[in-house]
């Protein structure tokens, strides 16, 4: 009867975190804000209807900016709360590895964001109604957006492990995410290319969430972009683990 395996442990952690999300009104507020922001940017700023195009580029192009503020909010409680309440002491003395806990928490946050993304499906219905969209491309964009969200989330999870204060975790996450976004933003790369060697400009812009999202928002999911986001996730969660292992108390 004893199923002492990693999957069951990760599942237990995930289930608890999901219950934490949906057990509080904050989750619903978050989802509503997300949907409202997405709608506002797509319809009013991108002028979705006037564009006369049956694709969702005007919808996906805003995701990095919306994620910038909303995902650190999703991530901030993951570890900071455990520290503040002292429950981290029990969590780390359970017979499970730190990596199972990290993965469980991360996947819960990712799933939650996935739910948010899934709730934007009326967008797809709208373009389907307006024209004849490439559903495969839309699916790729969704997948890419989810991957990018994962990268944002891993940054937030990492900063959350640094402190017992959710607010501090939130702010540091935004700063780091902003760096990741701006690294590929044209004004920044232009400034940089004025004096920096080409390889540096190239490297910095390759670090960017934005430049890897360019083709994704048009519906092309390049393997390299996927690998990039996954490596960011992997790296951030690794740092997350190192932080937890080195700063268990306080």
């Amino acid at each position: 009867m004893k199923a002492n395996n990693s999957l069951s442990n990760i599942h237990a952690i995930m289930k608890r975190e999901m219950a934490g999300y949906f057990g509080s009104p904050v989750a619903y507020v978050f989802l509503v804000i997300f949907l409202m922001l997405v709608g506002f940017f797509t319809f009013y700023i991108s002028n979705f209807f006037e564009m006369g195009q049956a694709d969702l580029q005007g919808f996906f192009q805003w995701h990095p900016w919306i994620f910038l503020f909303l995902i650190p909010a999703v991530a901030m409680r993951l570890w900071a709360e455990e520290r503040r309440m002292g429950t981290i002491e029990l969590l780390l003395t359970f017979p499970i590895t730190i990596w199972e806990v990290i993965l469980g928490k991360f996947l819960a946050g990712w799933l939650f964001i996935g739910v948010g993304l899934a709730l934007t499906f009326p967008m797809v219905i709208t373009v389907g109604y307006l024209g004849n969209p490439d559903l495969g491309a839309i699916f790729c964009s969704y997948l890419g957006s989810l991957l990018m969200a994962g990268a944002f989330l891993s940054v937030g999870a990492m900063t959350s492990s640094l402190t017992r204060s959710q607010v501090v975790a939130f702010i540091i996450a935004i700063v780091i995410c902003l760096f990741f976004i701006l690294a590929g933003f044209a004004p920044v790369t232009n400034v940089l290319s004025g004096w920096a060697p080409a390889w540096l400009v190239n490297m910095v812009s390759k670090m960017s969430f934005l430049s890897h999202f360019m083709s994704i928002q048009r519906g092309v999911l390049d393997l390299r972009d996927a690998v990039y986001y996954l490596s960011v996730i992997f790296f951030m969660l690794f740092v997350n683990g190192v932080v937890i292992l080195n700063r268990r108390t306080s």
């Binding site: 009867m1 004893k2 199923a3 002492n4 069951s8 442990n9 237990a12 952690i13 359970f94 017979p95």
Partner: peptide, 13 residues
Amino acid sequence: DFCAQIRGFSGQE
């Protein structure tokens, strides 16, 4: 229930 799952118990047990 969470603690029991972490401790490796499942189902009826």
